[in-house]
Design a protein around this nucleic acid. Structure first.
Lengths: 137, 137
DNA sequence: TGCTAGTGATTGCAAAACGCAAGTACAGAG
DNA sequence: CTCTGTACTTGCGTTTTGCAATCACTAGCA
């Protein structure tokens, strides 16, 4: 993707940061499924490959959506956590989920979060936000 | 982008359709700026190239987001209009705009729609929807 | 001490997608 | 019957993916 540098349009600004087919999958894992380790992202159903995961994590850190927390003397402790800028994507992700829910006939409605999204979106957001008390303002 | 065929996740479903860096720009032009002709999409600030525009329009038609209306005996009359499936993306686009507005310091707030989005989003959506009475159910 | 497994990446290479410029086919204007 | 405008398509070089293999390091175990 060509970086469009500075844009006057908020949509293009957003797309330049996470408008590729993988970044939002990672952010979904962070925000919805509370994943934080490289190995957890790799384990997703979508089977992202290691080099792409590595590149995306890095660009999301650079864009200020994730912070990388490295353990001392052990790489296995490395984790990625969202910033407030990422937490503010909840409305976007929920809007996308509503749309996908409406049009994707293969959606797995047995996943608890799907029910919750329809029944009580605000409550769901509040519950998920509590996973990030450490980073939220 | 690899087509992930059938997915159980509504987000991945959505990304497979418009999760590339250009499709949403086109949809923005259709939904927000009421563009309908090839030449109008080409004129956007983002300078999409002709082959990519052509390919994206085609894939959005295939995905059921746009319909292509061809004039009889004159290609200059060809136009692209959104389906209900595309109109249902308004909440997604508005959510993205809110986020971009918050974090993009270069947003041009003198564009009237930006003010309107903050002041009266629902009213804005209703007003824009009236552009599509011909296609909406 | 050595061996094995797990983790967070990086590298190499083929395949796909993109970006740009040029060209094509057709309609209407003059 | 040229000239302009429009909706594409084609060629081609560059960039970005996708996949497998590999690396560097740590911990666990004997």
């Amino acid at each position: 993707m060509k970086k469009r540098a500075s844009t006057v349009c908020p949509i293009v600004y957003a797309l330049d940061i996470w408008g590729d087919p993988w970044s939002l999958v990672i952010l979904r894992d962070v925000l919805i499924h509370n994943k934080r380790h490289y190995r957890e992202f790799l384990a997703s159903r979508e089977r992202i490959s290691t080099n792409i995961l590595s590149a995306r994590l890095q660009s999301l850190v650079e864009a200020g959506l994730l912070i990388k927390i490295e353990g001392e003397s052990n790489r296995a402790q490395t984790m990625y956590r969202p910033t407030q800028k990422a937490l503010d994507l909840f409305p976007v992700i929920f809007a996308i989920m509503h749309w996908g829910l409406k049009y994707n006939p293969n959606t797995d409605m047995s996943i608890p979060i799907m029910q919750e999204l329809k029944a009580d979106e605000k409550g769901l957001e509040q519950r998920l936000l509590r996973n990030f008390d450490d980073v939220a303002t």
